[in-house]
Design a protein around this nucleic acid. Structure first.
Length: 347
DNA sequence: AACTCGGGGTA
DNA sequence: TACCCAGAGTT
């Protein structure tokens, strides 16, 4: 049997029942595909349901504010996905009369939609013959065909993309694309793949040559950098001082607290640190250490310290990114998880 | 072509 | 701890 037929047979028996597989509506499929970028199905599923419930159509999505969208996106990470979705929803309403595109060449022009997502939406919604190449596909092809070109290089991407499109089962691209991704996700897994019970193991290069755990090849990435965020908790009655993150950095357009970033981990008594705090919050400011948290991201290690501040003097007109909000309002603002957890534990 | 963008599951 | 996840945008 061919590689393609083996995959499809395996899929028809072993597939999970996932809501976005019951529709050909390109808007619904778009929602699922953006949410699932670099995100496990189990993690994205509740977000998919929430978004579909809040925004049943693309015009509902377009009518929302960006803050509403980011609020629903809280905790899912890669927040530019939410912002790009909002912009794309508005563009679809304005330029496509509210009908979400289904063709690859239209989709690829939209914000947040790259080669993978354009192939996925077009094949799932209109049956267009475009092969998806995601992390699952890289792994399945590298192992089965014994390809040791690094997948995170331009040559690797080109080679895998070419092979994927040659292999595509054009009579039903949607079925084949679903099959190869599902196979990678639950059978040909990154760690502990179920090779001994795999229906494709007879012709699998990696299995026959005992190199399953050496494929796919990926070039080492840059070392994680440590960063040190020192947050200050200022309260005034039932108000608290928050900062909107406007710069191009992590958590753009989310909210946290006034912050001094330092080059290393400092304690609240460090002289230079106290000096810079008093420069902003007045000479009488009293700094009290509250808690420390190590927050791990893919490319950074954020060392977060929280300090409470008393006897401060603060001129808000000098800091337009800082604003007093009530605790109720704070609940409704989109925040990174480390901030949300701190509020949960302290307020 | 290299960096940057989160958060969580897995072994 | 290290790796990976239905990748995309920027420089």
């Amino acid at each position: 049997m061919t590689f393609q037929n083996e995959l499809i047979n395996w899929y028809l028996i072993n597939k999970r029942d996932l809501p976005w597989r019951h529709t050909k509506d390109s808007y619904t499929i778009w929602l699922s595909e953006i949410i699932l970028q670099q995100t496990r199905v189990e993690q994205g599923l509740p977000y998919f349901n929430t978004f579909l419930e809040n925004f049943p159509s693309v015009s509902d999505f377009a009518s929302a504010t960006e803050a509403q969208v980011l609020n629903l996106w809280q905790g899912l990470g890669y927040y530019s996905r939410g912002r790009n979705m909002h912009a794309t929803a508005q563009l679809v309403v304005n330029n496509y009369n509210g009908t979400f595109p289904t063709l690859h060449d239209d989709l690829i022009k939209l914000k947040g939609i790259g080669e993978y997502t354009a192939a996925a939406i077009s094949s799932f919604s209109s049956g267009e013959a475009r092969a998806v190449v995601d992390g699952n596909v890289f792994r399945v092809l590298a192992r089965y065909f014994g390809i040791n070109t690094a997948i995170n290089t331009p040559e690797g991407k080109k080679q895998f993309f070419k092979l994927a499109n040659e292999l595509l089962f054009r009579e039903d691209s949607a079925l084949y694309n679903q099959a190869i991704m599902e196979f990678g996700a639950i059978q040909c897994k990154p760690k502990s793949p179920k090779c001994s019970i795999c229906p494709l193991n007879i012709d699998c290069f990696a299995y026959r040559n005992n190199v399953v755990n050496q494929l796919p090849v990926k070039l080492a990435k840059a070392e994680k950098k440590n960063r040190y965020f020192n947050y200050f908790i200022l309260t005034e009655g039932d108000k608290i001082l928050v900062r909107e993150r406007k710069k191009r950095d992590i958590w753009q357009h989310l909210y946290d607290f006034p912050c001094i970033e330092t080059e290393m981990l400092l304690d609240g008594n460090d002289l230079d640190f106290v000096e810079s705090v008093k420069n902003i919050f007045g000479n009488n400011a009293e700094i009290t250490f509250v808690s420390y948290k190590k927050h791990l991201l893919t490319h950074q290690i954020i060392n977060v310290q929280f300090f409470s501040l008393k006897n401060y003097i603060f001129n808000s007109s000098k800091h337009e990114e800082l604003n007093w909000v009530s605790l109720n309002t704070l609940d409704e603002l989109p925040k990174p998880n480390v901030i949300r957890n701190f509020i949960e534990e302290n307020f």
